[in-house]
């Protein structure tokens, strides 16, 4: 036959990989409600109000109440919807978000239980390309959801999402190229190790800003949330969704914010490395990563509370006429600098 059983060379035995994936998934799952409540609380504060404060102490149980409300709702489907795709689309969204979460390294390889365990889901030689492949599939989650709803608002939202995702994915990739050229590796742990001297957000400041902006667009966050602009499109691609399926979209959106924070942390802010040459013991690594991720997530919420939504043509011209040339120039310049200094 054509294929011998694959000789895989992962460092860990299979049972550690299973435990690892469960732990990372559990952590991601627990972080989403935290981000939800923090966002609502912070948005409240930014707008001079309290935010949710009825459920539980300080309103901290609000996400739990939301989830229970959503999950106990009736599964509703418009008559014009394409049933199979309508059910599939939110699943795709959540699947790709969780898959992308596996990429974020929470720490270096540690010695636990007498074996070597890398504190990450996967460490791939293709690194960021894995992220981009899943964000490519995530597009179909939004697109199919909007199309199969059989509603014009959903359809318009999905179309805007399509155009926006294509436009900004290019800049996002090119912005990372500068870092990859400097680190000379695509592996995310390798990129973290390469930042021992200086975190990349200083030499790659342009790349960092472009990546951050493009990431706002890729996660459909304000100021790039025309895909679900509630003033014009009701709720965009997820207008017709309710109950558990809407919860899936909601969950995927916030998990995507976490993934992007994780990638920004890893690629531009030194991952698990501490500043000023502090070398803490290994178990501190995940905490460092989580704190950095929290700061980036705070930035996401801050921007949402501060900036108004951009118009559609403004988004397109920003993506194609500003970010793309800047990102290309940044990659080119980095390449020249690396060649000259080596």
């Amino acid at each position: 036959m054509m294929l011998a059983p694959a000789l895989v060379g992962y460092a860990e035995p299979w049972w550690i990989q299973i435990i690892k994936s469960i732990v990372i998934f559990a952590v991601g799952l627990q972080l989403v409600p935290v981000v939800l409540i923090v966002e609502r609380k912070l948005l409240g504060r930014f707008q001079g109000r309290y935010g949710p404060n009825r459920v539980g102490p300080y309103g901290l149980l609000q996400p739990l109440a939301d989830i229970i409300k959503l999950l106990t709702k009736e599964q509703f489907r418009p008559r014009t919807a394409v049933g199979f795709l309508f059910a599939l689309a939110p699943t795709l969204s959540i699947l790709t978000a969780v898959a992308a979460f596996a990429l974020i390294p929470f720490g270096d390889v540690q010695h636990i239980f007498g074996t070597r365990v890398g504190l990450y889901g996967v460490d791939l030689s293709i690194g960021p390309l894995y992220l981009f492949s899943f964000s490519a599939i995530a597009f179909y989650g939004i697109m199919l959801g909007g199309w199969s709803s059989g509603s014009k608002y959903s359809f318009l939202g999905a179309m805007r999402a399509a155009a926006q995702l294509i436009s900004y994915e290019v800049s996002q990739g090119l912005a990372l190229l500068g870092v990859i050229i400097s680190a000379q590796t695509l592996s995310l742990t390798g990129i973290v190790h390469a930042q021992g001297g200086m975190w990349y957000f200083i030499p790659q400041a342009v790349g960092f800003l472009i990546f951050l902006t493009a990431s706002f667009a890729e996660t459909n966050r304000t100021p790039f949330d025309v895909t679900e602009a509630d003033a014009e499109l009701v709720a965009g691609y997820n207008t017709e969704y309710g109950g558990g399926r809407f919860a899936s979209y909601y969950f995927a959106e916030y998990l995507n914010v976490l993934v992007v924070s994780g990638i920004v942390t890893t690629v531009f802010f030194g991952g698990w490395l501490m500043p000023f040459g502090i070398h803490p013991p290994g178990w501190v690594d995940p905490i460092v990563v989580l704190v950095k991720m929290a700061i980036i997530t705070f930035l996401f919420i801050w921007v949402r509370a501060t900036l108004p939504r951009l118009r559609y043509d403004q988004i397109m011209s920003l993506g194609w006429k500003v970010l793309l040339p800047l990102a290309s120039a940044n990659a080119l310049l980095t390449a020249i600098v690396v060649v000259v200094t080596h």
């Binding site: 390309l129 981009f132 492949s133 964000s135 490519a136 599939i137 597009f139 294509i166 994915e169």
Partner: peptide
């Protein structure tokens, strides 16, 4: 990865 990014994704 390129297959997915370029063909499925773009």
């Amino acid at each position: 990865a390129v297959q997915v990014v370029v063909y499925a994704g773009a």
